[in-house]
C-alpha cells in the first residue's frame, strides 16, 4: 500500500550542483519551500540517492508531486526524476530566474549575496505556485 504521507507531500528536488552558485541557489530554494513556505507539506530527497537507484527514494518520487530545480543545462534533477518514474509537476531552471536580475552578483557556490537570496525566494514562490 502506498505511504499516505508520501502521497500528500510536494517533493522539491534540486540539482545541488557543487561547482557554481546556481547549484546552491537550487538547494536553498528547496529548503525555503520545505522549511518556510510549506512546512510539513513539502520536503526534498537526496538526488544522489535517487540516481543511485534507492528503492525508497524512487517510491517517494513516484507517489508525490515533484518540482525539480536545475542549475545547469545538464538538467540532472529533471532527467533523473523523470527516469525514476516521478511525477514532475514543474521543472524549473535557476538560470531563467537569474536572467531577471541581469548584472547582479549572486554570490558563489559557497555563500549567497543579497541578490542570490532574492532569487532563492523568487524560485521558492514559483515552486509554491506550481
Amino acid at each position: 500500500m502506498a505511504d499516505a504521507s508520501a502521497t500528500e507531500k510536494l517533493l522539491v528536488i534540486p540539482c545541488s550542483g557543487i561547482g557554481k552558485v546556481h547549484g546552491l541557489i537550487s538547494r536553498e530554494a528547496a529548503y525555503h519551500v520545505a522549511d518556510k513556505l510549506l512546512p510539513g507539506q513539502a520536503d526534498t530527497v537526496c538526488l544522489a540517492l535517487l540516481v543511485a537507484g534507492d528503492d525508497a527514494t524512487q517510491k517517494k518520487v513516484q507517489q508525490s508531486s515533484c518540482v525539480t530545480v536545475d542549475g545547469c543545462p545538464k538538467l540532472c534533477a529533471y532527467k533523473n526524476v523523470e527516469r525514476s518514474g516521478g511525477k514532475i509537476a514543474k521543472g524549473i531552471r535557476v538560470y531563467d530566474a537569474m536572467k531577471r536580475h541581469r548584472g547582479a552578483s549572486f554570490g558563489t557556490a559557497t555563500a549567497l549575496s543579497e541578490d542570490g537570496w532574492t532569487v532563492v525566494e523568487e524560485l521558492a514562490a514559483e515552486i509554491q505556485r506550481k
Binding site: I18, L47, V51
Partner: peptide, 27 residues
C-alpha cells in the same frame, strides 16, 4: 559535506584539489 568540500577547494587546498557534481558524475 558540501560546504566542507567547497572550503577545501576555495581556501585550504585550492591548488591541489578539484571536484565534480555527484549527480552529474553518476548521470
Amino acid at each position: 559535506a558540501r560546504q566542507a568540500v567547497r572550503r577545501v577547494l576555495e581556501g585550504l587546498r585550492p591548488q591541489q584539489s578539484v571536484t565534480i557534481c555527484l549527480p552529474l558524475f553518476l548521470e
